[in-house]
Amino acid sequence: MTLSAIELEKMITFRRELHQHPELSGQESMTAERIAMTLRDVGVDEVHENIGGYGVVGVIKGGRTGATVGLRADFDALPLEEANQFSHRSCLSNVMHACGHDGHVAMLMAAAARLVKQRSAQGTVVLIFQPAEEIGTGAEAMLAEGLQERFALDAIFGLHNWPGVDAGHFVIHDVPHMASSDDFEVTFHSSGGHGAMPHLTTDPIVAASLFTTAIQHIVSRNIDPQDIAVISLGSLQSGHASNIIPAAARLTGTARCFKPELRKRLEVRINDVAEGVAKTTGCDVTLDYVPSTPAVANDIVCAQLCRDVVVQRWGHEQLVEHPVSMGADDMGAFLSHIPGAYVWIGNGSGPQTPKLHQPDYDFNDAILSTGSDFLASVAMQFLDNHQ
């Protein structure tokens, strides 16, 4: 099922055109139109648009009715200025495909072309092109608009490119391997005052400083050392002058872990710390805690199917180990409702390999054929196993 030289060149061109014309989460209208048009050109049986925003779904029917397997790719870009100078660099300022979603789409589109040509004797393949992954809302939005009810998926699979792993090698976890991700915003409020007379007011900067250090004790003192969790603050804004105590200090952060019960524990303790600091400093406090994506946890049977496909197609040596990641992906939302597996494919290793979410990143076109072969093979194997 390897791509011919002509097919590969066509998919590389398609991928680079997507890279050149990125769109941010929730704004992916032109990308969605391009995906839908290409699916029709490939020859899928059905194309459904505008599911959960700009989500696109293609359907490929086998010879007879049977099981239904989903293959998923994401297609939004990031608010980042591209540093690359190659010909297919982003044509937009401060928008680029810095996570390889253009490559994910191209791999799935190439798999779609194969599955149209080599249709399963039984069953249906559903191709899910998902928007808004980077802000953690796309998968839930597609589910909320009836994706599962409309297409009745028995399983779902996907690929994410992974810098730091040799190109074309696969990492397949049985344990949760991408973290849940929740965001929070804490604001300490004061009446404000003069820096020379702090006793006449309360100080939100002092409160924010105490909160900053206190929340770091949650993981070290409230969480079992055998569990994995992280709390990080990404911003702190307050005041404009050296001699004025401001009226507010605002902090934003993220909390990440792998277990649902631990996820709730982090939320409770962050709230406790915010309220405790407010009481200690005399400030008022508001906390906005926003649950985002659940952890990515593979179904063990589906993960084994993926390993079997890799071994059959390329041999045991293409399967490698790699630590889990505190990075998040809303594929976890799909996997919370539907059994499946999310697999990492190496994008290249070595000290000069660009990392995800960096201005010099680019998807490695050398893995496009392998990735599409894997997706098509997994779909066929799943349908063969469920006749």
Score class of each variant (00 low, 15 high):
A297K: 13
C302W: 04
A297D: 10
W314V: 05
T370I: 12
A333V: 02
V310G: 00
P294K: 02
V309T: 01
N347T: 10
P351L: 04
R313M: 09
C302R: 01
D308S: 09
E321H: 13
C306I: 06
V324L: 14
Y361N: 02
A303G: 05
S292F: 10
G332C: 09
L305P: 04
Q352K: 09
G340H: 04
Y361V: 01
A297S: 14
G348L: 07
K355G: 13
Y342R: 12
S349N: 14
H316G: 05
D330N: 04
D308Q: 07
L356T: 13
T353C: 13
V296T: 07
V343C: 13
V343L: 07
R307W: 07
P351E: 11
A297M: 08
A297H: 09
P354A: 00
P339I: 05
P291I: 05
S336R: 05
G327S: 15
D360P: 03
V290G: 05
W344Y: 15
G332P: 00
V310W: 06
I338D: 03
V324I: 13
A295H: 01
D308W: 05
K355L: 15
G346L: 00
C306K: 03
T293R: 15
D362Y: 00
W314G: 06
D365A: 08
P354I: 01
A366G: 13
V311S: 08
D299G: 10
E321Q: 12
P323L: 04
M326A: 08
G315L: 12
Y342H: 14
Q312A: 14
Q352M: 06
H357V: 12
V301M: 06
R313Q: 11
S336Y: 08
M331Q: 05
V343A: 07
L319T: 02
V290Y: 06
W314N: 09
G332F: 04
K355A: 14
D299N: 13
D329E: 15
F334H: 07
R307E: 11
L356R: 09
L319C: 11
E321G: 07
I345Y: 02
V290P: 01
E321W: 07
S349M: 08
Q352G: 09
S292K: 12
E317G: 00
G348Y: 00
D329R: 02
T293K: 15
S349Y: 07
N364S: 15
S292I: 14
V296Q: 04
T293I: 15
M326S: 03
A297P: 02
V320D: 13
D299T: 05
Q318D: 07
N364E: 13
P351D: 14
D308E: 13
N364R: 14
H322A: 14
S369T: 12
V320M: 08
V290C: 05
G327T: 14
M326P: 08
Y289I: 07
G348M: 14
I300Q: 06
